[in-house]
Simulated assay, not measured.
Amino acid sequence: MVGCRHNAKNTLPKNYLYFAEKNGAEIRAEVEVTDVRPSTGKYEVTHQTSTSLFKSKQTVRANNVIFSAGVMGTMKLLLNLRDVKKSLPNLSGRLGTMVRTNSEGLLGSVARKSDINYSEGVSISSIYNFDEMTRIEPVRYPDGSSLMRFLAAPLIDTDVSVPMRLLKFIGWALTHPIDFLKALFLPGWAHNVTILLVMQHADNRMRFRIGRSLFTLFRTGMVADEEPGYEINAQVKGSHEVTREFAKRTNGVALGSVGENLLGMPTTAHILGGAPIGKNADDGLVDENFAVHNYEGLYIIDGSIMPANPGVNPSLTITALAEYAMSKVQSKK
């Protein structure tokens, strides 16, 4: 999940990107695409350096373009191209709809003692079927990888108001100072922590658009709205009970996330959707082969095309969809 110390992890540089280069593809790393626009039967793709203070731009031409920047990257780029830059003004009005969170939450437990090294072993070694709707994966982080602790918060149920949750947090910190320090400040967090990734295949939806909000610092950016008729609950049903039981058995401090526990916001590691499949541009952004309606030669092949919450890690499903889409592209003759 965060790399393999034995150089054995099956990551993109070791599989698809490796074989792409072997077959003649040129990989341009550390660049960000800023524009895609039609040009005399082809497309002009403009990109700029992403790791330098001085942004040098280049433009390449292509017959076909595949958007595969993950949901957040693909949606942000396409919404900007349709609504801000007007480079692709005929993108479907369905762009950014039917976005899902895999109906999940990230919780965990920090052991009070350090006699067991919870960071040793495979990152995700098992999955537990809590009920017919819910799967739970215990997740490890390598010792020393403790940055995620800044997303953690004490486990507080979301059935009370935000001010009451803040008061409960302060009360917990004052009455359990050692647990407070262990969970949020003292060294050895990854050594002692087990993250519980709780996922459900229950349907939930929201939508992305270009706008302004507190989270964009009131600048123009991608924001999320509720999808009419649907809601996304911050607290996944059953997740707090399992986390408290796990913490009890490991003599640990039960943890949730800042977004869920203190702000009532859902947390996800597997954002999905935003590019609905439909017969035409009125019904969806892409067709059954993930080609973009109204723009021949454009494709979307990443988590954006996922049509539902699988309730498990979606990476292999996305891979299968990508291979299916590529099987529909004709080879050069």
Rank of each mutant, 00 (worst) to 15 (best):
E226N: 09
Q48H: 10
R140A: 12
L255R: 00
D302Q: 04
D302R: 02
T267P: 01
P228C: 11
S145K: 02
K279Q: 14
K42N: 12
A234I: 11
N192H: 14
A269I: 04
E241L: 08
R37T: 15
P89H: 13
S327C: 12
S68R: 09
M164W: 07
H47T: 05
E241K: 13
L17G: 13
G229V: 08
K85P: 03
V160S: 08
I156L: 04
D283C: 10
F180V: 05
E323Q: 14
F218K: 11
Y18D: 14
F215P: 01
K9V: 07
I27Q: 10
K9L: 12
K113R: 15
E104F: 09
A247G: 02
I66C: 08
A152Y: 10
D287R: 03
S327F: 10
L12E: 02
N192F: 10
E32Y: 01
T46C: 01
E21R: 13
I301Y: 00
A190S: 15
L174E: 07
T220Q: 11
I136G: 05
L197H: 06
Q330N: 15
W172C: 08
K113Y: 10
L78Q: 05
N102V: 12
E226W: 03
G188P: 01
S331P: 07
R100I: 00
K22A: 15
F290A: 14
E226D: 09
Y43T: 10
K14H: 07
R212D: 11
P228W: 07
K86Y: 07
R209Y: 02
D115F: 10
L147E: 15
V312W: 11
F290I: 11
N117G: 09
S56M: 13
M1R: 06
P276Q: 13
K55R: 15
K9R: 08
L91T: 05
N192D: 13
P38I: 06
E21P: 01
V292C: 02
S161A: 05
G259A: 14
T319Q: 10
I305Q: 06
V45H: 12
H191W: 02
Y299D: 01
R149A: 08
V160I: 15
V31P: 02
I318Y: 00
N280R: 12
G252W: 09
A224N: 03
L53Y: 13
N261D: 14
I27R: 12
L321C: 04
R212Q: 14
G3H: 04
D283E: 15
L285N: 00
V236Q: 07
D287F: 05
Q330R: 15
V31C: 06
E104N: 11
K248N: 12
E120P: 00
Y295P: 02
L214V: 07
A29T: 11
A325Q: 07
L272C: 00
